[in-house]
Computed example of a mutant assay.
Amino acid sequence: MSMFKKMLASVGIGAAQVDMLIDDAEIHAGDRLTGIVRIQGGRVSQNVDDVYAYVMTKYRKEQNDSHVEVEAPIAKILLAGKFTVEAGQTYEFPFSFELPDMTPVTIGRTPVWIQTGLDIKEAFDPKDQDYLNVSPHPHAQIVWEAVEQLGFRLREVTCEYAPAHGRGLPFVQEFEFAPAASEFRGRLDELEVIFFPSEDGIELLLQIDRRARGLSGLFSEALELDESFVRCRFSRSDLGRGASAVAQELAGIIRRYS
């Protein structure tokens, strides 16, 4: 009977289960995620090599003349090492880790979730998925407010395949803003922004060429940078002066290239 139970557990029947209990699913990119991981032993004892958590999202990629959605890990976090999950026993331990600065914002169709699992050799690897509501990194939030002060309104957000510019990730998250009531209405059709926040500040990649209208996936298709793409950076000190000061700097850049 014991051997039969082990065979069932190896394919997931009566195996150990894992569940991540998150303290607060509302979080900013770069903030600390905390909670408890609960592991419930199954019908037989099982040896676990690792307890891990992946920060996951999805991005769009062009394939065979169509767009497909691809799941992508943003980071892998080791929560615990080797131990034995005894049959029928419950284990709980706290976790705490920082969400990566480059975690996408969960706007539109962009999901972010934590996939927690138990690495069990030669057996079913149980997983648990917990979705997050991710707001912009504080540094990106200041720039976003600055863009809005200039009269731009968010029109679309997408994660697009662009491995050469993802800073270690296979994609970038594009924010497309439309000039609503501002001096730039009529001068350009849209402003596309990619945020690269860090502890020291933020780098931006801007597309401010008015000829951009009507093109989809600009960054993914045209990231062999040309004159229509502009890089700029704001230090932590720059950002500390507030959104209005950042807006003035951005306005000068947009005027120069629009």
Rank of each mutant, 00 (worst) to 15 (best):
T84M: 09
T57K: 07
D200A: 03
N133H: 14
R32Q: 14
Y54V: 10
T110E: 04
F95V: 09
K58I: 08
F229C: 07
L215F: 13
D19T: 01
D209V: 02
D65R: 11
M3F: 14
R109N: 15
L215G: 05
L132T: 07
Q207A: 00
S228W: 06
E71F: 12
V157G: 00
E98N: 12
V37R: 01
A247R: 00
R256I: 01
L132H: 07
T84S: 11
V85P: 05
V55S: 08
V147Y: 06
N64C: 13
K127H: 13
P111T: 13
Y54Q: 14
K5D: 07
G252S: 09
I254M: 03
L250I: 04
D238G: 02
F97S: 11
A212F: 02
D19M: 08
R187Q: 09
E86G: 13
S235M: 03
E122L: 10
A9E: 03
V85E: 08
G108A: 14
A25S: 15
V147L: 00
D49C: 03
A72Y: 05
T158E: 11
T57Q: 05
I254L: 12
T84P: 03
V44E: 04
D50W: 06
D31Y: 04
I120M: 08
R233W: 04
L188C: 05
K121N: 09
E203Y: 04
R211F: 13
H28I: 03
D50S: 09
S216D: 13
I208G: 03
R167Q: 15
V18R: 04
K58N: 13
M1E: 14
A75K: 14
D19G: 01
A75T: 12
V147S: 00
V55I: 10
S220W: 11
A164C: 10
E86Q: 15
K5W: 12
S135Y: 11
F95C: 09
R38P: 01
H139S: 02
F184A: 06
G81C: 09
A181T: 12
V112P: 01
R60C: 10
Q115N: 12
L132K: 02
E224W: 06
E221D: 06
F234H: 01
G81N: 13
P197G: 06
E98G: 08
L99Q: 00
V18W: 07
E62N: 13
L33S: 00
R109Q: 15
L205F: 07
L8W: 09
D209P: 01
G186E: 09
L250D: 04
S182T: 09
V68E: 15
I13L: 11
P163F: 14
L33H: 07
V44K: 01
L225M: 09
V70N: 08
Y91W: 05
G201C: 03
S45W: 06
R32D: 11
I77L: 07
R210T: 00
G242E: 02
V11Y: 14
E26W: 12
Q129G: 06
T34N: 14
Y59L: 11
H67F: 15
L225A: 10
P197A: 02
E224M: 04
P179K: 00
F234S: 02
V18E: 03
L21Q: 15
R43A: 15
I107D: 09
R210K: 11
D238T: 03
L99N: 05
Q149M: 03
D23T: 10
E86R: 13
G88I: 13
D209H: 04
G201P: 00
M3N: 15
T103I: 03
M20D: 02
V143E: 01
G81H: 10
C232T: 12
C159I: 08
I36C: 13
G240T: 04
I13R: 09
